[in-house]
Amino acid sequence: MSRDNATAMSEREAAEALETLGLSNYEAQVFVTLQRLGGGTAQGVSRHSEVPRSQVYGAADDLAERGLLEVIESSPKTYRPVELSTARQLLTERLERETTRAFDTLEELRASDRSPTGGDVATLRGRRPIDDRIATLVADADSTVVFVSPTAESLAETIATALRDAASSGVSVTVVTAEPSLRDRFAGTEIDVFVMSEDNPADFAGRALMVDDRTVLLAAETDSSPVEEEALWTGDSSIGRILAAFMRSGMESGRERHRGGPSGHERQ
């Protein structure tokens, strides 16, 4: 790749990054070009970028209003970018303000009941959103929670906190796992930890949650690269009650098999 092509690609990448920080396409190109030139007129910026001269003026004025350019009142008018450290701070602060404003507004608009209705099934993708959904469902429990956590890593701290809070409020909470260390993690709580022994192993397909025998969430890793987690869940519905019945039956069957072997179930 020639140096000119490499430079063009670097400028394009920088402009694209600036767009994610809130600049328009023309604003980003003008700012990047002025950084490379150190300053220039609208004609000079247009000559060294893909921004038409007629569009440079508006983009430069907008950048100046944001505090990202100095305008030198000469003839012709000349533009000079502020220091990168200043630009970084201004754009970061603006992004934080806009993020706060957007999510404050969304919080006000959000419906209080976000559960699927009837026989609907909702899907989620990504570990963090799934962790958050599990924690929310646990927090909404009235009587029982069963969480299947194949490994210690399957149980994020947000979920662990929600399980402890539910148990302390009188909800019957059971954690099913193949990881004995979870006994220690919930020591001193009212949470039942049911550990599948080597003599009676569990073939976990992924994580699972059952709340009040009617709400069920099932999550499993995908074959994509990089590996992600996908989940489906259903609220107080006929599908949820059917899935809950299967989970309850499987757990009771596991308990029965366990009674014939080494003890793997301890009340914490």
Rank of each mutant, 00 (worst) to 15 (best):
157 E>I: 03
229 E>H: 06
182 L>A: 00
165 D>C: 02
119 G>S: 13
9 M>T: 04
222 T>F: 05
102 A>N: 06
82 V>T: 14
74 S>M: 03
51 V>L: 05
112 S>L: 12
112 S>C: 04
27 E>N: 10
214 R>I: 05
42 A>H: 07
54 S>E: 15
18 L>E: 13
106 L>N: 06
1 M>H: 09
105 T>Y: 14
216 V>H: 01
171 V>M: 13
34 L>I: 11
178 A>R: 11
220 A>L: 08
93 E>W: 09
259 R>D: 13
203 D>Y: 07
76 P>F: 04
214 R>T: 12
21 L>F: 11
72 I>R: 14
20 T>V: 03
145 V>Y: 11
173 V>Q: 05
198 E>G: 01
135 A>V: 04
208 A>T: 02
140 D>K: 10
218 L>Y: 00
77 K>Y: 11
28 A>E: 06
72 I>F: 03
231 A>C: 00
156 A>D: 08
24 S>L: 00
18 L>K: 05
264 G>M: 15
174 T>D: 02
186 F>R: 08
120 D>F: 07
89 Q>W: 03
133 R>E: 03
245 A>N: 13
138 V>L: 08
114 R>S: 09
16 E>Q: 14
59 A>S: 12
158 T>A: 09
53 R>Y: 05
70 E>Y: 15
74 S>H: 06
25 N>R: 12
60 A>T: 06
241 R>F: 06
260 G>F: 00
246 F>D: 09
255 R>D: 09
13 E>M: 01
224 S>T: 12
55 Q>C: 00
74 S>L: 06
178 A>K: 08
67 G>E: 00
162 A>I: 13
83 E>H: 06
189 T>K: 11
120 D>R: 13
40 G>I: 06
133 R>G: 03
237 S>C: 01
244 A>H: 12
172 S>E: 07
101 R>D: 09
199 D>W: 06
190 E>W: 04
31 F>N: 04
4 D>G: 00
132 D>I: 03
29 Q>K: 01
27 E>I: 01
66 R>W: 02
160 A>D: 11
140 D>W: 11
65 E>G: 02
58 G>R: 15
50 E>K: 01
98 E>F: 15
21 L>P: 10
61 D>K: 15
118 G>A: 09
50 E>L: 04
264 G>C: 13
2 S>K: 09
250 G>K: 09
135 A>I: 02
125 R>D: 00
7 T>L: 10
82 V>D: 09
97 R>D: 10
168 S>G: 05
189 T>D: 10
261 G>W: 02
169 S>C: 05
4 D>K: 11
233 W>T: 02
176 V>Y: 06
75 S>V: 07
